[in-house]
Amino acid sequence: MALSSHERPAAPAPPPPAPTEASLGDLIGEIGQDLSQLVRDEIELAKAEIKQESTKAGKAVGLLGGAGYAGHVVLLFASLTLVFALANVMDPAWAALIVTVLWAVVGGVLYVLGRKHLRTVNLKPERTVETLKEDARWARHPTS
């Protein structure tokens, strides 16, 4: 494009200002802000992951609960079937008593085993308590 005699070419844009050196305090402040933002972002990510996994776990627990209920119904009807089968060879009251005693024995054995296992459970987080004690000792004497 040709310039007319009365048009002047546009002046070139001024150069960008020279970057100023940031002070040490500014740099440390920026690092602190970046670190704070990073921690917030990580916490948000963790929350989202926990929420997603909790939803999946809730569905799984619901399905397992339904399976447990169905299993209970199966055992109930199997017990009734056993009572009716035994009633063909003996008095129905004796048949029902035999099946009841059988389930009482199963329940007793499960109770004893469960109680035995429960006594071995230690709900105190031993390793965490020891680590916290070490941290406290270090905080009191960080150079030793």
Score class of each variant (00 low, 15 high):
77 F>E: 10
20 T>E: 14
16 P>D: 04
53 E>T: 09
66 G>S: 13
50 I>F: 04
87 A>E: 05
31 I>Q: 14
49 E>K: 15
25 G>F: 03
35 L>T: 15
57 A>N: 11
128 T>V: 14
34 D>Q: 14
94 W>V: 14
33 Q>F: 03
16 P>E: 07
81 T>G: 11
116 K>L: 12
128 T>Y: 07
71 G>L: 03
45 L>N: 11
96 A>W: 02
69 Y>L: 10
1 M>Q: 13
50 I>M: 08
94 W>L: 15
111 Y>W: 06
102 L>E: 12
136 A>D: 08
55 T>I: 10
126 E>M: 01
8 R>H: 13
28 I>V: 13
115 R>Q: 11
14 P>Q: 05
69 Y>D: 07
58 G>W: 06
42 E>P: 00
73 V>D: 03
118 L>E: 11
90 M>H: 03
64 L>E: 04
21 E>I: 09
31 I>E: 13
64 L>H: 10
95 A>Q: 01
61 V>E: 13
50 I>S: 02
89 V>W: 06
72 H>E: 10
92 P>I: 05
93 A>G: 10
21 E>H: 11
116 K>R: 13
107 G>N: 14
126 E>F: 02
53 E>P: 04
78 A>F: 08
77 F>P: 00
63 L>I: 13
111 Y>S: 04
109 V>P: 01
66 G>M: 12
37 Q>H: 06
70 A>F: 12
101 V>D: 02
15 P>F: 10
73 V>P: 00
62 G>L: 03
104 A>W: 02
85 A>V: 11
